[in-house]
């Protein structure tokens, strides 16, 4: 039995917005699955459909073997759900919040006290157990929220952008809990805007854009599709200098013909699996051409890079998927044709 089995699920809101347009998913039990996509891609809508909060417009969803449309109550009993917005009752203490969740999910009276203590320990809130949640930090509220989703030891837990807005320390702590419960056999369905988060936690990732899954695979597979790491080089000089640098990078065999070269506002950007090994040599080659390098940086691919690689579309500042933001910048820079024209060594 799959934890989640979705077939051709669509969801259209009353105002005509097609938030989800035909999603197929099969998530085996015990998997840590990540739904990766920008704001407005349909992640939350999809998760609400799986958790019975929204009725799919068409298609079918089975969760833990129960149909979301005909057996919503059985689905609700067998899942935990942590919404995107932190939801705790701020007028209640941490203990009272968890107790309410225990009662709501029918955790037997005899086990409640132990379960509450256990969860308070799990999320490191034992010290604040009897304080009202109103005074909690964002991270503490999130952790309390997570605890409330776990009271009935659900075999499947939905986490909708659980770490958005948290500082790195709080985020790492939450990641620990998620890994631990996954290690204990719980299936986890997580949505995120951050490739790094999906990379850290998930065994498999589905990339969602405009209500459709555009790619599925392990984090390593997805990153491979980007084609490696990214070397950003800042150049001192005008358009022609950048164009020339791009040509130098593209024509060199430093990257063994497996590189994508683009011009950027600052200089050039090279995506290659050999970015680290060949980076220094490229800098030297640029200097030999009398191009002055004013900065460089090697980084891992971001969500934006993954989208660009998979869909040819970039993600703008608001996180909305948009047609080639980066290309537009190039247009302004008068080098629109530079990127596709640059070397793309038959890797695809």
């Amino acid at each position: 039995m799959s934890a989640i089995d979705a077939a051709e699920v669509t969801l259209t809101y009353a105002d005509g917005t097609e938030a989800v347009r035909g999603i197929d998913l099969d998530i085996p039990e015990g998997e840590f699955f990540g739904f990766l996509g920008p704001n407005g891609a349909g992640k939350t809508t999809a998760i609400k459909t799986f958790t019975t909060l929204l009725q799919p417009t068409s298609g079918s969803v089975t969760v833990n073997g129960f149909d979301v449309a005909s057996e919503p109550r059985a689905v609700r009993e067998s899942i935990g759900y942590m919404a995107q917005e932190t939801s705790v009752d701020e007028e209640l203490t941490a203990t009272e919040n968890i107790r309410f969740a225990c009662e709501a999910y029918g955790v037997p009276k005899t086990e409640r006290a132990d379960r509450i203590d256990e969860l308070l320990d799990l999320v490191d809130l034992a010290a604040a157990a009897d304080k009202e949640a109103e005074g909690f930090s964002g991270g503490m509220k999130k952790r309390l929220d997570a605890a409330m989703a776990l009271v009935h030891r659900p075999p499947l837990v939905f986490l909708d952008e659980p770490t958005t807005g948290l500082d790195p320390k709080a985020r790492n702590r939450l990641w620990e809990y998620f890994r631990r419960i996954n290690g204990e056999g719980t299936t986890i369905f997580l949505t995120t805007q951050y490739l790094e988060e999906a990379d850290q936690l998930c065994e498999r990732i589905g990339v969602i854009l405009d209500g459709e899954i555009v790619a599925t695979g392990s984090p390593a597979e997805l990153k491979r599709r980007v084609g490696g790491e990214i070397l950003d080089i800042g150049l001192d000089g005008n358009e022609p200098a950048r164009e020339r640098a791009a040509t130098v990078a593209a024509d060199s065999d430093l990257f063994e013909d497996e590189a994508t070269v683009e011009t950027t506002d600052e200089g050039i950007s090279v995506t290659s699996r050999r970015a680290r090994e060949a980076g220094t040599d490229l800098l030297v080659a640029l200097r030999d051409e009398d191009l002055s390098v004013i900065g460089f940086n090697i980084r891992a691919p971001t969500l934006d890079d993954v989208f660009l690689a998979i869909t040819g579309e970039s993600v703008d500042e608001d996180g909305e998927a948009d047609d080639g933001d980066r290309t537009n910048e190039h247009n302004e820079a008068g080098a629109a044709e530079a990127s596709p024209a640059a070397a793309d060594g038959g890797n695809r």
Binding site: M1, E29, G30, N64, G65, E77, S78, Y105, G106, V107, P108, K109, E111, H152, R153, P155, E184, G185, T187
Partner: peptide, 21 residues
């Protein structure tokens, strides 16, 4: 269903304690 998922011993005992009123 939960019991089936359980792989480790620890997970199995955990699944067994899922008795909900």
């Amino acid at each position: 269903g939960t019991a089936e998922t359980a792989t480790g011993t620890e997970a199995e005992t955990e699944a067994a304690t899922v008795r909900r009123s």
